[in-house]
Amino acid sequence: MRALVTGAGRGIGRAVAEHLSGRGYRVALTARNEDELHKAAAACAGETLVVPADITSAVDQVFDRVEAAWGGVDVLVANAGAGSSAPVHRITDEDWSRMLELNLTAPFRCVRRAVPGMVAAGHGRIVVIASVAAKRGDPYVAAYTASKHGVLGLVRSAAAELAGAGVTVNAVCPGYVDTPMTDTTVAEVAAKTGRDPARVRATLAAKQPVGRLVSPAEVADAVWFCVGNGAVTGQGVDVSGGAVQS
């Protein structure tokens, strides 16, 4: 079986790649940072393919590389993403477009590219890493939240369309995860407010009833649940330490 993971160089994407590799999948890893990709690939248990690329502009090229090497993609995990923070009246057109391009349009293009081969094979698994922001609105993250609401809508509609074709489509919706993306959030908040970074991190952890950040491995476990269970489709699986109940 062959899997493609976007944003696979670090954080959630790397944890997912390692988990799938440990389950016997050949894993193609793509992200912009080639050094990080090679380190992530070295941590995998089985065969890997490193495909450095900017997923916002190179979806077809990434899939072409994987198909040329392995013949197709059985599992797509669309993980690449980023966040931004600003009051709604200060969000620039550029920031808005960047959030939508990376968090919504790039996953759409990946899904669009993966579906024909999966349907032809009669089997496929698509998992998009969304966020608890796909299910609620928090202040100062309107662009990010809009992109994540949109990608959950994409997942639900694609799942309904493909349910009879042997292809499942799900989202995993993490809360605050102990990743470099959260490190960036902490640094930005600390810089804007003058607060101690350790206190900022503690505040983010406290937003989750379990009182801590989610680990990347816990998110990878949820991805595997979506991959391994053919009766689960059209779902947004929360991994938020109880911050969102559904």
Rank of each mutant, 00 (worst) to 15 (best):
M1K: 05
A3K: 05
A3S: 09
A8L: 10
I12S: 08
G22D: 01
R23H: 09
A28N: 06
T30W: 12
T30I: 04
T30P: 03
A31M: 03
A31G: 11
N33P: 04
E34S: 14
E36W: 07
L37C: 07
K39F: 00
A41I: 03
A42P: 09
A42V: 10
A45E: 14
A45P: 00
G46L: 08
T48G: 09
L49C: 11
V51P: 03
A53F: 10
I55G: 02
A58M: 01
D60Q: 14
Q61F: 01
E67I: 10
E67K: 08
A68I: 03
A68D: 15
A69Y: 10
A69S: 14
A69K: 15
V75S: 04
V77T: 04
G81Q: 07
G83T: 13
S84Q: 14
S85N: 04
S85V: 08
A86L: 06
A86I: 10
P87S: 13
P87T: 11
I91S: 02
I91V: 15
T92L: 06
T92H: 08
T92K: 06
D93F: 07
D93Y: 02
D95R: 13
S97M: 14
R98L: 10
M99E: 15
L100V: 04
E101Q: 11
A106H: 01
P107W: 04
F108R: 08
V111H: 00
V111M: 06
V111A: 05
R112T: 01
A114H: 08
A114D: 08
V115P: 00
V115M: 11
M118C: 07
V119Y: 04
V119H: 02
A120N: 06
A120P: 00
A121N: 12
A121R: 15
G122I: 07
H123E: 12
R125W: 00
I126L: 09
A130Y: 09
S131K: 07
S131T: 09
A133G: 10
A134P: 08
K135T: 13
K135Y: 12
K135I: 01
R136I: 13
G137W: 12
G137T: 14
Y140R: 14
Y140I: 12
V141P: 00
V141Q: 13
A142F: 03
S147W: 06
G150I: 11
V155D: 07
A159D: 07
E161P: 03
E161R: 13
L162T: 03
G164L: 02
N170I: 00
N170M: 00
C173N: 14
G175E: 02
G175K: 00
Y176D: 08
T179F: 09
D183Y: 05
T184N: 09
V186M: 02
V189I: 15
G194C: 07
G194P: 01
R195K: 15
D196N: 15
P197S: 14
A198P: 04
R199Y: 00
V200W: 01
R201T: 11
A202G: 12
T203K: 12
A206C: 04
V210A: 11
E218V: 10
V219L: 11
A222D: 04
V223A: 04
V223R: 03
C226K: 02
C226E: 01
V227G: 04
V227D: 02
G228T: 05
G228I: 02
G230M: 06
A231S: 14
V232H: 05
V232A: 15
T233D: 12
V237R: 03
D238V: 15
D238A: 15
G241D: 11
V244N: 12
S246P: 10
